[in-house]
């Protein structure tokens, strides 16, 4: 069983935060098919949030094929998120570290490096959408 936490200052909608935490737990292997998610009542009791918010998050996860609600029993994990090959993750991390080092050696400040990363990240992702 996982426990949800909330970051009120993140600006991310509450139901979205719950969805992201389930994704994260699936990616890290904290949740596996067959595991039960906390009931709306349990989440509500610990976070003092609207039960409709929890149900909305669970509906989203269900539409994505990751969980299924079994009436009277609870909501269960049924899907897995594709996990990237660890070797590929390590390779990209190495090349990223190399890029960061060369940026630092070229005299860029941490703020500048982060700004470049953020804009490039955003441009790259919106390319895929538009």
């Amino acid at each position: 069983m996982i426990e949800f936490i909330l970051d009120p200052s993140s600006g991310v909608a509450t139901y979205q935060q719950l969805v992201q935490q389930v994704h994260q737990a699936l990616r890290l292997g904290l949740l596996e098919p067959g595991d039960r998610l906390p009931t709306a009542q349990q989440v509500v009791a610990s976070l003092a949030i609207n039960p409709n918010t929890v149900l909305k998050a669970y509906r989203d996860l269900e539409r994505a094929g990751l969980v299924r609600a079994r009436p009277g029993l609870g909501t269960f994990v049924v899907g897995r998120l594709p996990r990237t090959d660890p070797a590929a993750q390590a390779r990209f991390r190495t090349s990223m570290v190399g890029w960061l080092r060369s940026a630092r050696d070229a005299g860029l400040t941490p703020d500048e490096i982060e700004a470049i990363y953020r804009t490039a990240f955003r441009d790259c992702l919106t390319e895929g959408v538009a």
Partner: peptide, 10 residues
């Protein structure tokens, strides 16, 4: 608010 939300859920 926790109590209130539990009541709403139940």
């Amino acid at each position: 608010l926790q109590t209130l939300m539990e009541v709403v859920a139940a």
